[in-house]
């Protein structure tokens, strides 16, 4: 369900291929992202530009992949809409994830801190 783009400079951009990341597809999302991480991707941007809704299971899956990356690399998120941002704020996920407004800002910033 995810679309992945890998760049020469080591960035992997992941876009969930569904407008809603919920209990219905959270496990598939987590499994597919985990495969990519296990495949060696360690500078990952998960772009939520096309995701309108994230429920508690979706958030659980996202935290699951963040834990999977752990100290082996960096996983950031981008493109959160205002509803998802609100959820991040209530759950303090804005203190756990580095959040960028879009993929370009995310990759630029990550490249600078290389």
């Amino acid at each position: 369900m995810i679309h992945t783009t890998t760049f020469d400079n080591g960035f992997t951009i992941i876009r969930p291929g569904a407008a809603r990341l919920t209990a219905a597809n959270a496990k598939t999302f987590k499994d597919e992202v985990t495969d990519i991480i296990n495949g060696g991707a360690n500078r990952v941007v998960i772009d939520f530009k096309n995701v309108s809704f994230l429920d508690s299971s979706g958030l659980g899956a996202l935290v699951g992949v963040l834990k999977k990356v752990g100290h082996r690399g960096e996983l950031v998120v981008s493109g959160l809409n205002s509803d998802v941002q609100q959820m991040f704020r209530i759950c303090r996920m804005d203190r756990v994830f580095t959040v960028y407004k879009d993929v370009e800002t995310a990759t630029q910033s990550m490249a600078e801190f290389q």
């Binding site: 704020r89 759950c91 756990v96």
Partner: peptide, 9 residues
């Protein structure tokens, strides 16, 4: 103004 969920971290 929010707080971490329980059992996550």
């Amino acid at each position: 103004d929010g707080g971490f969920p329980v059992g996550m971290f």
